Amino acid sequence: MDCTGMNQDSNRILLADNLKLLRTLPDESAELIYVDPPFNTGKRQMRPQMKTVRDEAGDRVGFGGRRYRTELVAGKRAGAGYSDSFDDFTGFLRPRMEEAHRILTATGSLFFHIDYREVHYCKVMLDEIFGRECFQNEIIWAYDYGARAKRRWPAKHDNILWYTKDPKRYTFNLDECDRIPYMAPTLVGEEKAARGKTPTDVWWHTIVSPTGKEKTGYATQKPLGILERIVKVHSNPGDTVLDFFAGSGTTGVAAARHKRTFVLIDQNREAVKLMKRRLEKYL
């Protein structure tokens, strides 16, 4: 697969070591970069492949009241997975973020998706690369799904750090943002309540449903709604959107749906196969 240069007029999915490939991309060639790197959880990220079986004693109810049970497909996994453990996590990320800074256009934005374990160290690193004055927001993506801790408050959020190349000149099309319901609609009147409001820096959004059509089976897939919000507000039609930890390709779907060009990079062959299937009509 050709991994040299970046064609601004075509969508691309590239199988490559992202650092080597980033070093070949032109200066100021992407208006928006979103990355969702490994979170350094110390685990191997895998998602088991499941199937439903008709069983009148099962715990799930389907059409017509029929009951089913869920089973793990023996020996099957969705993709090869990847090791999410690093001896020097910021040392791994720093050269890639330095390349991201170089590749961003003068009015471009970086969105860096991480979790509570590493966000503080990553922010210090990004402050050093971009400058503290170019830090715009820490967005909290809050959700409510999954296991509940018994000895501490359950961790049900991710952190998304937004940096710009320039502290004052950057793309921010707030009018393009989806609107959300007021938490206390009776306090704002019927007209405002019907229109809804633009989000704050806390984004309440469910995870990808384990049984929904959006699910690809990729272990760390992020919701399309989150990526669409970022793409619509922080880029313009015709812009190039780069994701070099592309995974399941959600960034590419969001970009293509809103007439942006996408460049997706991943070194996992199974991830690249998945993205090519998912984005076939845009290639």
Rank of each mutant, 00 (worst) to 15 (best):
R195S: 10
I180C: 05
K20G: 13
G108H: 06
V202R: 15
K222Y: 02
E71Q: 09
V73C: 10
M6T: 02
D239C: 08
T4H: 14
E128N: 11
I160C: 02
E176P: 02
E71R: 09
K150T: 10
F39W: 09
G91S: 04
R269S: 13
L93W: 03
T164S: 14
G146L: 07
L72H: 11
T206V: 08
L126P: 00
S248A: 12
K213P: 14
A255Q: 01
I139K: 04
D2M: 14
G62L: 09
T52R: 12
R260D: 00
Q136N: 07
K168Y: 13
M97I: 07
I114Y: 01
R179Y: 07
R23A: 13
M1I: 15
R54P: 08
C177T: 08
K192C: 09
A256N: 03
P38F: 00
G225A: 14
P185M: 06
L22T: 01
K192L: 12
R269H: 11
Y182R: 03
P223D: 01
T70F: 12
K276N: 05
V61Q: 05
E118S: 09
D9P: 09
V208M: 00
R151M: 07
C134I: 02
M46S: 08
I114K: 06
V188N: 06
T216Y: 05
D2Q: 15
A80R: 11
E280N: 11
F244I: 01
A57M: 11
E28K: 15
R66I: 12
G146K: 06
C177Q: 09
E28M: 12
A142S: 15
Q136D: 08
G217Y: 03
T220A: 06
D243L: 02
R152W: 09
K156C: 02
A106L: 12
G249S: 05
K192D: 08
A271N: 03
R277K: 14
T171V: 15
G252A: 04
H234M: 10
R278N: 00
R94D: 03
A184I: 09
Y116A: 12
G42C: 07
Y121E: 09
G247Q: 01
W204E: 13
E270R: 11
I265G: 01
K215I: 04
P26N: 10
T171C: 15
L72W: 12
T211R: 10
D201E: 10
R132D: 08
I160M: 06
T4D: 10
I140Y: 07
V35R: 02
L32N: 02
V233I: 15
I13E: 00
G249T: 01
T186K: 15
A256T: 02
Y34S: 02
D166C: 13
N159W: 04
I103S: 04
T200P: 08
A155M: 13
A57N: 15
K192T: 07
G247F: 00
